[in-house]
Design a protein around this nucleic acid. Structure first.
Lengths: 217, 217, 217, 217
DNA sequence: TATGAATGAGGTTTCATTCAT
DNA sequence: AATGAATGAAACCTCATTCAT
């Protein structure tokens, strides 16, 4: 008669499971109540564990928040990387198309936002105070719009993007637009239609960046 | 026997002065430490008064925060209204120009942001959690992008804005872009040049909305 | 019909009363359970107030403990100063007699030790760990045995104390003896008779310090 | 089929080794941070083992502390017994000389105090609160000064100690002095010279106890 | 009007201990 | 034998708010 193998889990498995559960609970709590409102009591209860477990696993609240942030950032990054890979698999895509694809993929995530994604935006909002600091958050933002600037330069090089625009401020606008639109969509989810907003964003990007076809002649 | 008139006014005026001082201190505290971090202790100390005075004047923290929000919103609104009035004083301006003027005026404020203005953006960020609520904040946001939608329709009516665009989602994008760009500029003030960002935003608006001149012949 | 004046107390009085009550409660708690065991919960309950009041009045536990220490030190100092004043009121006393009086007065306090006094000794014991630190404690100890050294030198100058002894180490021994004897008396109050211990200490002091009368001749 | 004998001893010996390591780590932690500050986390880390090992070996914190105490007491006792044995090996020593030897040996230990020794004194200090209790500590103290009383009586019997002194309170003073002096030396190690303090203590003991030689004649 | 004393709720974190592995 | 996951209790402290002055 075999022993019940169901119950047996290795320590490592238990740790991984617990951390996953806690991170999910933390993301939900942050999405719902903000970073400061996501207390260990709330997180622990939501995870179905004790209030002390988060500290046990992550050491401190700051560390837990940072982990939620990096986990969510990774998820977003990989979603966008997948989209790029899928789009560029069979044909070469221009710099402009890359930007459009990535931007659209980002906003697409907000059609059915996960708690993780919403938490990420909430954490972005929590970095606005001048004293505030969520570890890894500012750095990730900077990486993001530096990436946009790079993409713009690539598009200028391959002729898909107008050469008379300044990449750096344009990247800031592009990045800010995506974050801001996401925030509005999230807070006003009942009054906004995400897919038409996505369409409008594509329109903006084309209007602003697209190399105008040689008129006349 | 006449009472000393000097003292007479004091009663009402002192109240107004005290409230102004408190509101200013609260705005600074919020801009620096966020809504939840702006405790009465911090505010009271910064205002040079007791810790109990904010409660005394505003009743509760929520009420104080709401007052800071509405005060700041009024300031922003009147700055934009002034700009529109100045621009349209001598000549009629198109719907598109109105949008460009208002947008540019908004971003211009962030070249030298007051504590009030930064607090307003911080409070915007604090509305991202789904449970969060700052009284008057969401309503003001909605008014704002409904205003943009109206402006777009006006521009379409007077022929300055392309007629093939959908005003409502476009308003969301416009509004989100301004908020998001402002946030990025604020958090990355050392790495971004506001005036070139303003320029880029003007470029985006034109590219997206402007009625294209009849090409060819 | 006069109003009940009993209830009316000024803010300052209330504060003074509250602080006194809290200090007394803290001294009792420390005497009973040690510095680390004297939690705010215990102190608050013993003082008949809330658990948060100690923080409100003293800012932190360390500050409260330091206040208990300095208050107790003052009490002990003034008791000893009183004794010296009483003894030297009508006649000049020698350096040796001064030492004997002060030492005996110190031990006399332990015949009916107040909570404050016991707390002071407990706090002395809490300074033994190398990392431990109670603000003002070490300094007071140093002042104490430097005072003894000064007294010994005075006695040597006036001929009441043998000139062949080294004041500084002797002061350490004298000070250590008093503290150590007090500690033993306190912890073993049921098995020791304080007055005979006092007598023995007087004997030791005389034997060690007294200028021996010229023998022989 | 013989089992590998190399491994055989390991089982019991490893346990002893582990306990020794833990006791040493606990002594260091107590010496540094006091009894209450010596948490299992600190001890485990210092011992290079898990945080749960102390509980596993000793059952509870109280038991561990008691073991540290008794181990240290044994070490001190055997150091003093060695000294007595060495001194009395070749000649009979008087009661007074015995006392002087033991006292001096005790203080000599504080010239280069081990963590164990410092922990012992820290634990003595931790017994001052009236509710405090470290198992075995009070009993050992009592044994110690009862031993002194016995020694004094022996000295009186052999004529080396004055017969007009009361052994019991004198033993309390002697014991308290040694503990107190040790504590002062430990906490003020930078400002005190142990060897001159030892000298002073010898002076005190002689002055207080020594049978005065028949003056005159 | 304004202050500050007072409090209860709740925050993060530390800790000794238990239990499964 | 040893580990570390897990927990409940309790620590200090902060905070918004109430109340007497």
């Amino acid at each position: 008669m075999p022993e019940p193998t169901r119950v047996r889990r290795t320590q490592a498995q238990r740790r991984r499971d617990a951390e996953r559960t806690l991170l999910a609970a933390a993301a939900e709590a942050i999405a719902e109540r903000g970073v400061s409102g996501a207390s260990f009591a709330v997180i622990g209860e939501r995870a179905g564990t004790s209030r002390a477990l988060p500290t046990h696993h992550f050491g401190s609240k700051d560390a837990l928040v940072a982990r939620v942030a990096s986990t969510a950032q990774d998820a977003v990054q990989s979603a966008m990387a997948d989209a790029v890979r899928a789009t560029s698999a069979f044909r070469h895509i221009s710099g402009l198309d890359l930007i459009r694809t990535v931007a659209d993929t980002y906003l697409e995530l907000f059609e059915h936002p996960t708690a993780e994604l919403r938490a990420l935006l909430v954490m972005w909002g929590a970095t606005f105070p001048s004293n505030a600091s969520i570890e890894g958050m500012l750095e990730a933002e900077r990486r993001a719009y530096e990436g946009w600037a790079r993409n713009i330069r690539d598009g200028q090089a391959d002729g898909s993007i107008r050469s008379d625009i300044n990449p750096d401020p344009m990247a800031v606008v592009l990045h800010g637009m995506l974050r801001g639109v996401a925030a509005v969509v999230l807070t006003e989810s009942e009054h906004t239609d995400v897919s038409s907003v996505r369409h409008a964003v594509q329109h903006w990007i084309s209007g602003a960046l697209e190399m105008t076809p040689p008129t006349g002649s």
